[in-house]
Amino acid sequence: MNLFDRFFNTDADAEARPGARDDRRGLLISVVAHGLLILLMVVGFSTAPDNPGPVQVELWAQGTVAEAAAPQEQPEEQQPEPAPEPEPTPEPDDQAARLAAEQAEAARQAQLAEARAKAAAAAQAKADAEIALAKERQAREDMERRLAEQEAREKAEKEAAEQAAKEKAAKEKAAKAAAEKAAAEKAAREKAEQEKAAAEKAAKEKAEKEAAEQAAKKKAEQEKAAKEAAEKAAREKAAKEKAAAEAKRQALRAAMRGDALEAAGIPNGNADRNQRGGGGNDGYAAKVRACVQPGVVYNVPPRNGSANPTASFRTRLAPNGQVQGVDLTRSSGNPRFDDAVQKGILACSPFPKPPGGKYPSYIDVDYRMYD
Score class of each variant (00 low, 15 high):
280 G>P: 08
36 L>Q: 11
266 I>W: 07
365 V>F: 14
251 A>I: 00
42 V>S: 12
24 R>M: 10
130 E>R: 13
194 Q>A: 15
4 F>C: 02
79 Q>E: 15
88 P>Y: 10
155 K>T: 15
211 A>I: 05
166 K>Y: 07
263 A>Q: 10
344 G>C: 04
294 P>R: 04
66 A>M: 14
361 S>V: 15
259 D>F: 14
368 R>C: 05
55 V>Y: 04
318 A>H: 09
35 G>C: 08
63 G>Y: 04
286 A>D: 14
24 R>F: 07
10 T>R: 06
70 A>F: 04
371 D>E: 15
38 I>P: 00
154 E>D: 10
184 A>S: 10
11 D>A: 13
223 E>W: 02
335 P>K: 07
41 M>K: 03
112 L>N: 06
180 E>P: 05
82 P>I: 14
38 I>G: 08
83 A>F: 08
69 A>F: 08
311 A>M: 06
320 N>L: 00
16 A>E: 11
70 A>P: 11
237 K>D: 14
190 E>T: 05
53 G>Q: 01
250 Q>I: 12
317 L>N: 00
256 M>Y: 07
34 H>I: 09
229 A>H: 12
170 A>Q: 12
298 Y>H: 03
189 R>K: 15
343 K>G: 07
21 R>I: 02
341 V>A: 01
220 A>G: 01
302 P>C: 00
139 A>W: 01
111 Q>V: 03
301 P>W: 00
267 P>G: 01
141 E>L: 12
153 R>W: 01
18 P>S: 08
89 T>V: 10
54 P>T: 06
223 E>P: 00
234 A>W: 05
39 L>P: 02
286 A>F: 09
53 G>W: 00
152 A>C: 03
146 R>L: 05
109 Q>V: 09
353 K>M: 13
336 R>N: 10
109 Q>R: 08
130 E>Q: 12
185 E>R: 08
153 R>Y: 06
300 V>Y: 02
270 N>G: 14
13 D>E: 09
210 E>V: 07
334 N>W: 08
81 E>S: 10
210 E>L: 06
184 A>C: 06
63 G>N: 04
345 I>K: 00
265 G>I: 03
152 A>P: 01
272 D>Q: 12
337 F>L: 11
189 R>Q: 15
116 R>C: 11
337 F>A: 07
68 A>N: 09
293 Q>V: 09
27 L>C: 01
107 A>S: 04
15 E>D: 09
115 A>T: 00
277 G>Q: 05
38 I>K: 05
104 A>E: 10
